[in-house]
Amino acid sequence: MIELVCPAGNFPALKEAVNNGANAVYIGFKDDTNARHFAGLNFNEKNLPKAIDYAHQRGTKVFVAINTYPQPSGWSRWKKAVDLAARLGVDALIVADIGVLDYAAQSWPELSRHLSVQGSATSYESLNYYQKNFGIKRAVLPRVLSVAQVAQLAEKSPVELEVFGFGSLCIMAEGRCHLSSYVTGESPNTCGACSPAKSVRWEQTSQGLESRLNNVLIDRYEDNENAGYPTLCKGRFSIGENTFHVLEEPTSLNTIAILPELDNIGIKAIKIEGRQRSPAYTQQVTRVWRQAIDQYYADPEHYIPQENWSAALNKVSEGSQTTLGAYSRPWQ
């Protein structure tokens, strides 16, 4: 059965994921060793053991994301994160950096290693590299691939595959995007933050509500428009005379409609994005996806996504609009 992997930015969210049917939860530490390094989020040495106990007692696995790229001055922090997660008995590490993968494989060979989406492996030859050198058990695929490409890849993949099923849509190949550091100095790779909150400024002006990132104007909203978080790739910019969403309109990914396809091509796990979101988000999304997966396996031939699932998911999605993202490629 396809495994449901849900986000937990804190203990209440972890409880929601566990209680609503997640097969695994993924978490991070309170520092830049993970790609959701946000204020007030994540776990520390003190509350992680309790969280692991809570999940394990109820049959839910715990994965720890240590999926940013350490530079020499920070290396000891990443090493410490790997050691701590291993000692506390988590079920897998989610890692992107080659050096960290190597350290984990050498120091804790028994502990499962998953290649993070930030590792940006988009072909089976790339997966072969990580499998051969670091014995990864699973890889999370970047959101740039179409279903047909995922299927091709799955056919020859040396490891289990996990794909994103729901949440914010990254349109760039993850782990290979520096837009954020170009404008703010901080990026997912270096700091675990994209378009960081501390660089955001909102201002009501005579031309409308403006969002800025390190002083760069990202968007300007008229009174009747919904304002979204100023993620760089979702801004409205100008090319010549035209002002539009040059890279991407704010939408969310939702693959609940293609669950049977994902199962048929041999996908092992579905990942829900959103460790930065509220416990209510985790609860809602976990519950709907649990229902969908259970219903699918109860009668695979007659699986039809229910309307109330979409309604529930749309309520918590960014831009209140969901798409199949690169999986269907309407822009292809």
Binding site: V144, L145, S146, I171, M172, A173, R176, C177, H178, L179, Y182, C233, I239, N242, V246, L247, E248, A326, R329, W331
Partner: peptide, 15 residues
């Protein structure tokens, strides 16, 4: 010009 990001999408076509 520094290469900053790669995507499956083509932004020049989009423009």
């Amino acid at each position: 010009h520094m290469p900053l990001a790669l995507s499956a999408r083509c932004f020049t076509a989009r423009a």
